[in-house]
Simulated scan of single mutants.
Amino acid sequence: MTARRTIPRHAIVLPALCWRADGSEFHAVTVDISGEGIRMRSATTPPMDAELGCSIRGVGAMQIRVVRTGAVDFAVRVMGRGATPGEVVRSLVGLARLQAPPPEEVRVYRRVVPERRAVQVALADGTSIPGRIVNLSASGVALQLDMPLEVGQVIVVGRHRAKIARRIDGGVGAAFLVSLDEATVGEHTVL
């Protein structure tokens, strides 16, 4: 049985120039980074435990040591000279996040604008405030409110408990704690 890695990996694709102690150079491309090191691909696979100089675009020059080799890739650890391992990791993780932004939210349920848009919103302290439904789905509702509410706050919209998920212009988006039956959500829905 093979042990599964639990250290998170961040995909990052950047060109790198590597050089040996004798001054010979080869090109590589970063594949990913983790707390264990940097994985790279190259037509040239250096030998295990080789100590190399390396310059990765956007990060800078560093000393590395080969800790694993494969047919077309190899893994390295950053050593002391040049950028510190912590600086390299922070730079690469930041660049990885820029290369792979979080996926856009995908809506599962269709949104509708009900005929009856006025609704009462009850707060945990018993305060009731008027709201106006911008749109709703089986999973949540967008509301216009005159009072600012906090993300994470639990409210009751009409008769349905919901948790505020985000702020929108002039109001909030809230997710129902118990989704509505999608088949019953339409223009005639009354919360």
Rank of each mutant, 00 (worst) to 15 (best):
G70V: 08
H10A: 08
G80N: 11
I164L: 09
Q63E: 15
S179C: 11
N135T: 01
A3S: 12
V154G: 00
W19V: 03
P85Q: 06
V72P: 00
R161M: 09
L92T: 06
P47E: 12
V59Q: 00
R5E: 09
V185G: 01
M147L: 15
L123C: 10
T184G: 00
I38M: 05
R107L: 13
A43C: 01
F26C: 05
P114G: 10
P47N: 05
V178G: 03
G140A: 11
R110A: 13
V31C: 06
A50N: 10
R111T: 05
R57L: 13
Q153V: 11
M48P: 05
I164K: 06
S128T: 14
A118D: 13
E115W: 10
R57S: 15
V190D: 11
T30I: 11
V89T: 08
L14W: 08
L17T: 11
L17S: 12
V172C: 05
L52C: 11
G60H: 10
T44L: 08
T45L: 12
S55F: 06
N135I: 03
H188G: 07
V119Q: 03
T6M: 06
M1C: 02
P130C: 12
F176I: 06
M62W: 04
T184E: 04
G60T: 07
V154Y: 02
G86D: 15
A71T: 09
I164Q: 09
P148E: 10
H27K: 14
V151S: 08
G23Q: 07
M62P: 05
G131S: 06
V106T: 15
E115Q: 12
V119F: 12
Q144C: 04
R39C: 14
H188W: 00
I38V: 15
F176L: 12
R110Q: 10
P101W: 14
A122L: 05
V76I: 14
P130K: 04
L123A: 07
D146L: 13
A75C: 14
L143W: 06
R77G: 06
R117Y: 04
P46F: 07
M79H: 05
I12H: 01
A100E: 13
R132H: 09
I168L: 14
H160S: 13
R9V: 03
R4F: 10
D125W: 12
T44G: 02
R97H: 11
L191Q: 02
G58C: 10
A122R: 15
L14A: 03
V121H: 08
T84K: 09
A11L: 13
G82P: 02
G152E: 08
V157L: 08
S91D: 07
V31H: 02
A11G: 02
P46H: 09
G82S: 14
L92C: 07
T127W: 04
K163T: 15
A96V: 14
R90W: 07
V157M: 10
S139K: 13
D49H: 14
